[in-house]
Amino acid sequence: MPSASTLLLLTFFAVAGGVLAWKGGDYLVRSSERLGGHYGLPPVVQGAVIAAVGSSFPELSSTVIATVQYGAFELGVGAVIGSAVYNILVIPAVSALASEGRLASNRDLVYKEAQFYLLALAVVLLAFTLSVLYNPLPETAALDGTMTWLLAFVPLSLYGLYVFIQYHDSVDHRRTATRQQVAVGKQWAILAGSLVVILVGAELLVRAAVGFGEVFGTSTFLWGLTVVAAGTSIPDTFVSVAAARVGNSSVSLANVFGSNIFALLVALPAGVLAAGAVTVDLGTVVPMMTFLTFGSIAFFAILRTEMMLTTRESYVLLGLYGVFIAWLVAESLGVTAFLR
């Protein structure tokens, strides 16, 4: 049995890491939004790129730290997928409930951001599949393979296309936009300082996840899905809820899509590029990606009805997330064995 002091220390790491990720992400998003307003970017671009990159930096940091420092790329994968499930099911629901039970959408979000997000899911799964197909590990299970830096550029190149599209969408807006007057140097300094705070928080979260895995003899992937995913999703939650409360539903929803797109297309490849090459296991990745895809399709179907997320629909999304947590508990207890 693990000692009480060990569990207490790991719990402290998890809580402290989550708090630092939250505060660092909060300052990062605020400075990013002010800089976005200063440079005349439209609300959707601010939410999908500026706020999304800022609030998703904890996922990027966690993946790189877990891969380079602990050799646990699967922990980073778990953090990204677990955070993506949380983002797509919990954050919109909580944002809708916080804005009197109604969160409005629009066609730009449904037909551009949502569809690009589904494309991101497909490309990430393609990169994992190509790793096993062309770089298999014959000495281990048949579903293991090596993802190289070259394959990591497949999703990264798609994110480059995403930024290119967002840039051209913002050109016309910037010509007529009223730009905010801010202390540019101060905001860039705050942004840099918040990155340092997030890095410290990510290190504590990863250390807690690795420690819990060793203490309880369970997969670090499961701890990445829970401890790290929850800690790194806190900034996204506050950004979307705050935007929804002031009636800016476009930023709220765009932040959800943009955060998941950034995490899938940038955070995961960043871990591969930092290590040079990593081992991937489709037996673990595919079941989680399947649930993420199912949850995403359910969310898009609900969001498309009247372009509005209502109170009842919000509880449906929260119920789906409850199913996800129940499944993870069943996996950790050995009741189910979908994760290889």
Rank of each mutant, 00 (worst) to 15 (best):
S157K: 04
V256T: 05
L317F: 11
L89V: 07
A16L: 14
A177V: 02
V163A: 15
L35A: 02
Y167F: 12
I81K: 00
T6L: 14
I297L: 15
K23T: 14
G82E: 00
G211I: 04
V29C: 09
V53H: 02
A275N: 05
I190Q: 10
G334M: 00
L195E: 11
I50K: 02
A120K: 02
R245A: 08
S250G: 10
A330L: 12
L320K: 11
G283L: 06
F257E: 08
V266G: 00
V45Y: 09
F324P: 06
H168V: 13
I261Y: 07
N255K: 04
Q187K: 06
P58Q: 05
R102S: 10
L156M: 03
L126N: 03
R174M: 10
S3E: 10
T226W: 01
L8D: 07
R30W: 14
D236E: 15
M147C: 06
M307G: 15
F128L: 02
A96R: 02
L161P: 05
V110W: 05
H173V: 05
P42H: 09
T311M: 07
S105W: 13
A127Y: 00
L161W: 15
V19E: 03
Y321V: 03
D169G: 13
S157M: 10
S332Q: 14
S249M: 02
A66H: 01
Y70M: 03
Q46V: 13
F212A: 06
H168M: 09
M1I: 13
D169T: 13
V228M: 00
V154F: 04
L103D: 09
A192P: 06
W188A: 15
F164I: 06
L222W: 05
G78Q: 02
T176K: 13
S314D: 08
T293K: 05
A277W: 09
V215S: 07
L41I: 04
A244I: 10
A4W: 12
